[in-house]
Design a protein around this nucleic acid. Structure first.
Lengths: 252, 252
DNA sequence: TTTGAAAGTGTTAATTTGACACGATGTAAA
DNA sequence: TTTACATCGTGTCAAATTAACACTTTCAAA
């Protein structure tokens, strides 16, 4: 697999196609996304924040490219990853300052670029921001507070949010955003954050429990200034069972 | 809008990005898809049938490119169109015969090509196969009988089918495949064809009628050797109403 | 010991789903 | 003209699902 990567890296860059990653995290309060701050690279008058992304190699599979970029940024492997779609507005690099910045990292900044967006779900604590040089300027931002991004990245983010919203209604992929052990309240907040609407606490718990996709551990939450909650764990096996047999509605 | 198209056509081709169209039709019996037959172009040992597609222009918006290709092939405008996703396996042009064929229509056949797939829904009778030169070799094939296609087009078709399946569960887009006036049985068969499973007749009718998205006409079906059925018409206004106000579950 | 803060828990009414069968109505053939 | 054939169109009931709703428990910190 590492060998594979090296082979690919020998190839030339495809100047027309890039991959952008919408990397979602969850800080147990709200949905977040990993952005890179272009200010630290250069003084800049344009919008500072952008989604991490890069050009792909000529002979690289698109999905492979997304995996590679994600790995370069976070050092993480085996991450939940899904394509959002292709974005190809030729006006997407609209600001001069954007062009300037692109010149600093790309051989042919003026070439028309199609970008293929992916979203991934990671467990935030697993990500150590300083793991790679590429990630030096990276940081988490609260999704709901983002109003603008560089290039057409805001549009991409909206599409990724929408895709995630649809997906989580159908498949229980939310666990990719939570630590191994989590509480039902955390899961509840996660769903509310993603769906951007309140869900009745008791109805939510009932529905989740009926899926039999989580196991309650012996353990309880500790050190909280209120009644500690039961910890749960995701049941991988049951997940396979559900997703395989033509299961296509989680029910939210 | 025509001006727009001309302007775009002056630009150079982007040798790395193509658009492929999965054009669905419905012959009132089963779901069909428009394929081009490469045999008529050349004697050919590879797989004959492929999805229509073409390279995009350097400064062309992806969606615009899909609209253009669809127009070039069918002469149709204002068609329901939706992106399926990007496909970028560098091995996608796997057979030598595929390469040969590509050479005959492309300047740089060896360049790595990302393709962005779109699916569209058209009313079959509206499409006159001889409308354009590009369409000379085009024809309808029954979706369920397709086992292989050129390049990675079979994979793309599967993805498009899946997308359509998901979409029709959520939004009433099926009417784009039916004539202006249609019967409930036709609509019923359409849903069964797309979802690839039987739906109870009475339950189906009940559910559709509750949406209040169709109006029953005064008119009845004529010339059938059995009880003629009521004709219905799609209620555009109600559709807007439903899709706008955060309506997101059609219920199939 | 009191207070604050979140955890955890059930019932009920309304709605939706799924299963199921037969008479009506037109054309075409006998 | 009668009959056969093919599809149209229709209703009920039981089961499952959804939505709305409030109070007691438990721990830590003050």
């Amino acid at each position: 697999m590492n060998k594979e990567l090296k082979k690919v890296n020998k190839n030339a860059l495809n100047p027309n196609v890039s991959v952008d990653c919408v990397i979602f995290g969850f800080d147990l309060e709200k949905l977040t996304v990993l952005l890179i701050d272009r200010c630290r690279n250069k003084r800049d008058k344009g919008i500072k924040l952008a989604l991490p992304g890069n050009l792909i190699y000529t002979n690289e599979h698109l999905d492979q490219a997304a995996i590679r970029v994600l790995d370069e940024l976070t050092g993480l492997k085996n991450i939940y990853l899904e394509q959002v779609g292709a974005f190809g507005n030729p006006d997407r690099i609209s600001k001069d300052s954007d062009r300037e910045w692109l010149k600093s990292i790309r051989a042919e900044p003026e070439a028309s670029v199609i970008t293929v967006a992916y979203f991934s779900l990671i467990k935030m604590p697993d990500y150590l921001p300083q793991a790679s040089s590429f990630a030096k300027t990276a940081g988490w931002a609260s999704v709901s507070e983002i109003n603008e991004l560089a290039f057409d990245h805001f549009e991409i983010l909206q599409a990724a949010k929408e895709k995630l919203k649809q997906k989580i209604k159908i498949q229980p992929i939310g666990f990719n955003l939570l630590p191994e052990k989590f509480t039902l309240s955390q899961l509840h907040r996660l769903y509310e954050s993603i769906l951007e609407k309140p869900l009745d606490k008791r109805n939510f718990r009932r529905k989740i429990q009926k899926l039999e996709i989580i196991t309650s551990l012996k353990e309880k939450q500790r050190g909280v200034p209120h009644k500690p909650s039961q910890l749960f764990e995701f049941k991988e096996v049951r997940y396979q069972e559900l997703t395989q047999n033509g299961f296509d509605n989680f029910g939210f």
